[in-house]
Design a protein around this nucleic acid. Sequence first.
DNA 1: ACATATAGATACTGACCGGTAACACCCGTG
DNA 2: CACGGGTGTTACCGGTCAGTATCTATATGT
Lengths: 202, 202
Amino acid sequence: MSTAKTALALEKDDRIPPRERILAAAADLFYRHGIRAVGVEAIAEAAGTNKMTLYRHFESKDELVAEYLRRLATKAEAVWSRRAAEFAGDPLGQLRAWIKEMAAHIGASDDRGCALANAAVELPEHEHPARRVIQAFKQAQRERLVELCTAAGLTEPEMLADELFLLLEGARVSVQCMGRDGLGARLERMGEAMIAAHQARS
Amino acid sequence: MSTAKTALALEKDDRIPPRERILAAAADLFYRHGIRAVGVEAIAEAAGTNKMTLYRHFESKDELVAEYLRRLATKAEAVWSRRAAEFAGDPLGQLRAWIKEMAAHIGASDDRGCALANAAVELPEHEHPARRVIQAFKQAQRERLVELCTAAGLTEPEMLADELFLLLEGARVSVQCMGRDGLGARLERMGEAMIAAHQARS
DNA sequence: ACATATAGATACTGACCGGTAACACCCGTG
DNA sequence: CACGGGTGTTACCGGTCAGTATCTATATGT
């Protein structure tokens, strides 16, 4: 079976503790090649260490995967906090900024969609430790959107939040099926149209 | 790594030639557990045959995967033809029927989203024979939607087609992240709202 | 100088992977 | 009857998988 993996070992920096190097290498390889396609040995090597050290820090590959996703979720929450601060008191502006940022992501040539969603597709087993991370993150994401739509005084905020959420979620997977070609720009227009449709008619 | 696979060998029916039994078994296992999670031996066994016979009909696992997706694409095209015939001269009705059917899919308890999209997530390698199948199918799908929106006389048909396409695509992956809970019904409302927003104001 | 903790290196286990070789078998056609 | 094609069976190949045991090296703190 075809399994082309580019190692590209990020050069070892001893100032960074091995646990962090492992997580960085895992993030890169998992995202680019998929979780099941990457072996622990390749991760250890890319992190400038070895399997034994990896297993001293993570009790299994499944746990490493869960931690990889947990880190991404934390990072995403930080971005939301940053944006909330930047657009304090302007929920509509925050909503628009979010759409803009997602459109930019989709335009990036190395984008392979949402790592959490991809993991959900790759790991259907209900008992996998990654699944609770994914579910909690996506539900929080939707909740945040609902609150934003509500605060912006838009009509039927829950429905609009779902529309925007699914639109973006669809765009991020669709890019992996069909390629990019201008989707980023179209996405922004669609988001704006949906918001406009939920603005109270004066 | 956790890899729980339920075999559930469909009992062998000798009236069906082995090639078809293999494709049926592959379709079931690939969809339920993911492509990388299922080995050729498990497929052959579930098909009531063995690896050797499988490799007499498919030159590699990658080719089997491509054929699995090709069959699904063909089946989907047939559904579209059936629907086009049923709603001949009523593009709007056809559009609505499509949304209804997709919403029903999403409500089904064993749904794991679009097999083609899942495969795209699982197989990022550009050279994989499955990728051309996926891309062609998704582009045809979008094209059909554009034509339908145009025929229905809706405003900005390309944009509406994209909106509906991404909405549905998003719903099918989102189900795998967050569960179903009523998404089917909400989906229908959202689709109708989008269509309404593109109906020429009188 | 000593104890402790962390990390590196290498080799290993047992299982599974995709793919193949060799051979026995059955069944329909000539 | 003989033949040949599709099928089944078994054993195997080299490689990789997740995970572990063992031993050495290094750094830190006292």
